[in-house]
Nucleic acid binder design. Sequence first.
DNA 1: TCCATTCTCTGACTTTAGTCAGAGAATGGA
DNA 2: TCCATTCTCTGACTAAAGTCAGAGAATGGA
Lengths: 300, 300
Amino acid sequence: MDRESIDRVRRFNRTVGERIGVLHDHFLGTDRPVGEARLLWEIGEEGRDVRRLRDRLGLDSGYVSRLLRSLERDGLVTVEPQTHDRRVRTVRLTAAGRKERAVLDRRSDELAELILTSLNEKQRTRLTAAMEEVDRLLTAGTVSVEQLDPGHPDSAACLRAYFAELGERFEGGFDAALSAVPDAGVLGPPHGVFVVARLHGEPVGCGGIHLDGDEPPYIKRMWVAKSARGLGLGRRLLAELEGYAVRSGARTVRLETNSALREAMALYRSAGYEEVPAFNDEHYAHHWFEKRLDDGAATA
Amino acid sequence: MDRESIDRVRRFNRTVGERIGVLHDHFLGTDRPVGEARLLWEIGEEGRDVRRLRDRLGLDSGYVSRLLRSLERDGLVTVEPQTHDRRVRTVRLTAAGRKERAVLDRRSDELAELILTSLNEKQRTRLTAAMEEVDRLLTAGTVSVEQLDPGHPDSAACLRAYFAELGERFEGGFDAALSAVPDAGVLGPPHGVFVVARLHGEPVGCGGIHLDGDEPPYIKRMWVAKSARGLGLGRRLLAELEGYAVRSGARTVRLETNSALREAMALYRSAGYEEVPAFNDEHYAHHWFEKRLDDGAATA
DNA sequence: TCCATTCTCTGACTTTAGTCAGAGAATGGA
DNA sequence: TCCATTCTCTGACTAAAGTCAGAGAATGGA
């Protein structure tokens, strides 16, 4: 890692820490301890399970429990067992809680305004653009990609979301039964892998590859959640799958797609895929692609 | 302030707070409480007065004192009265203190590396560029500009630095005695104003304007410290002075400059100044400029 | 010389933040 | 039905962070 980049990041950390970090705590934590305020915020309008709160904030279970008791005493939240599993308890904001949270929301706005206010129009535009870029790239850095069984709940969640999206985007909807590959069996081991990307613990993308004897391996079910687009995640998943193909000794890799999925096609093209004649009769496919792997471009 | 910009900033605050703020404390405060670590860091290689430490970190005097006692007990710092004023005390790092501070330094590097490490080359370049931009603009927002007497210590510091820089940049050096305007008298009230820009309390830029009866007002001694360039500060100082000229009823404003000062000339041109024939016999001037103020462009 | 002011320090506090061990209810499978 | 496991909670802690009211030494004018 070069010295210059490191110094750049350090200077950034310092400026931002001073200008935002300090202000942040002073702003948000005026009438309520930061711990409680963070919790109140994290509960959200919809309510949340206690264990999810714990995970998200990375706090000890006893500590969270105590914080919740305190918020409950002030009449800001109610805590009730879930109906399905009465061990798990769900926290919900009361009307008073919502009000408090709205105050935090307002404060957060004020902090943002404070930062923008001393700049002119042009500088503001540049600042927000740069912030977006930093935001995107920092977020991209926290996305983890993991091999998972296609039957794992997170895999299933991705596939459900994927199919739902296809249903919306394809003219005439989408019916998984008409599509060629039955996922669970074929994309998992031993004849392939399925990878899932997670952001803050939430599954936000997936993709699978199937290897079958002498046939070139075959990529399917590539998907990235709307909330995680623009992070280069598609490219990363693709690279992951291609890497697997390379390690398995494959020389080419194939995939097919529907013309409604424009971003996907753009991604494949820019990743080195070239359109080829149909190599199967997938019901929803309009375009078939192939990529040669033996030129070391799998990591691109 | 538009909703979109505010949301952008809020999202940024959130991401950065999670990714940097949290990591920062976990990193730096492992074997020593954060308070002590921050203090140790802020003392710096040169040493610092206790009251400056307090101001900079915004802490209670009793608290700082206690922290210092603790660092002293561990043999990391020494605290001694200043020679001039024995009420104020100066903190200095011992050899052991320096060592401990170097550890913090190293940690700060590691944190930066951690952020960069999950990105590829291209993303890294983009991230550091965007960080620089955010850094610059956030810093620009904290620069304050104030009218000051040209004799004020901060004004004097700026002028000294300005002359020193001219001495370096002009062929044959610079001698204030050969230059037209004797600053102190003419740029201050009642016949003009002198403005000084400060960043974190340090003077980092200045400029003065002189009004003399029916003659167009005349801008001189525009300077921005090297450390504060790229913040749009020159433009801001210029606008400040032009504003003053407008309020005084002036229709045009004049200035002259030396051809060694390329950035200054570029600034004047882009701010609407046009080159005119010499209107005085300033010894160091090569170019003379004038700007009409009656088109409302003074704030540009 | 006196007196208000400045600066740092100490003692006596409070509040936050967080850890750890274990209790008790609910659940899921053997 | 039994038993291991999961989830949340309580009690009993500790350490860090910070506040407040003075005390005592220096200092700078009047």
